[in-house]
Design a protein around this nucleic acid. Structure first.
Lengths: 178, 178
DNA sequence: CACCGACACCTTAGGTCTGAGAGACCGTTC
DNA sequence: GAACGGTCTCTCAGACCTAAGGTGTCGGTG
């Protein structure tokens, strides 16, 4: 008995029940938030990947193109800036740029102001590709949230923002000098 | 002006502002939820990885050990069952089990009932390792949520569960027959 | 009892990432 | 103006994953 899956629970409820039975001494309630975030991120990732594929892109490429597009004309950033917004290592950015350069979506040039730096520029083809994919991407995201009411979505965004802020992940995340 | 970072925003607020300036014709509000989920999942992943490393484990290994431990005595599951709870491909499970078997944390044996199936069993060493890591893991998760009130955490867990359910990701999530 | 689709696990090739480190350049200091 | 620490980008090895395919087993059918 009690093997029947209740229609009002999700996969994490099952896991929490299992832990409650095996380790009733532990408070596993944090998993109710964190485990679900992991699962949702996975669902989001898969849906986004399918969308990008329809436009001949993948998620890492879209990430870079979107950062350049967001930056506004003349659509230029350095690899270091891209590294910071994408939250990946410099090696990952180098490889992403290699792929995008080969496809003609970006160009690399040396900076006039700083001999160490590279300036990455979105090409017309790159901007066209991104602007074509962006509405589809937003449709996908909107679709994933369609099951929640506008109020719930707003509430969720607010809670997630508060959580991020308490983790100390703020935009200018460098400790400011005294 | 308006370059000054406001202390009440997070990284996603900056991105939303950029899109509002560059593409005021698009409704980017879904990013406010989905982008934050991605960022939070990344923070969670990094914190968990550091915790697991203190116990000589990594996230994929912990995932498998925890699934076996949750299952209860005699701590046995098939690779297919592990594949379903871990949401990875069979090849990934094979490799995870190879690593765990080499470390002596699990054993593999053929099933008596089904000649195709393998039975994965948690060893005493495996159970000991998991039970040692689990409280530390929960401390890490609790610490990540410490900035939110109990009410906020509960609200968040509820919203995320509702979201997962609307996506159709329920425990017995097999595609329904026509 | 031989057959055949379905299933369980493993194998292999290919892809992206991390982490460590090299090479070049900047700005300051002595 | 030479030296020095710090910064920027790239390179390379190693880790983990996916996707596709192979082998062996199961269970029902004629």
């Amino acid at each position: 008995m009690s093997e029947q899956v209740v229609s009002t629970g999700d996969a994490m409820d099952v896991i929490l029940d299992q832990w409650a039975r095996e380790r009733p001494d532990l408070d596993c309630s944090p998993m109710g938030v964190i485990g679900r975030v992991s699962q949702l991120q996975r669902e989001v990732f898969l849906a986004q990947r399918a969308t990008f594929a329809r436009h001949g892109l993948d998620a890492p490429s879209f990430d870079v193109l979107a950062a350049l597009r967001r930056a506004g004309a003349p659509y230029q950033l350095t690899p270091t800036a891209l590294m910071r917004t994408a939250l990946v290592t410099s090696g990952a950015i180098t490889q992403r740029l290699d792929r995008l350069e080969e496809k003609g979506l970006i160009t690399r040039g040396r900076s006039d102001a700083d001999g160490r730096a590279v300036v990455v520029t979105l090409t017309d083809a790159g901007r066209t590709a991104l602007d074509a994919a962006l509405p589809d991407h937003l449709d996908t995201e909107h679709g994933m949230l369609a099951g929640l009411s506008a109020e719930e979505r707003e509430q969720l965004a607010g809670l997630l923002r508060r959580w991020l802020i308490t983790l100390g992940r703020v935009p200018g995340g460098t400790p400011d000098p005294s």
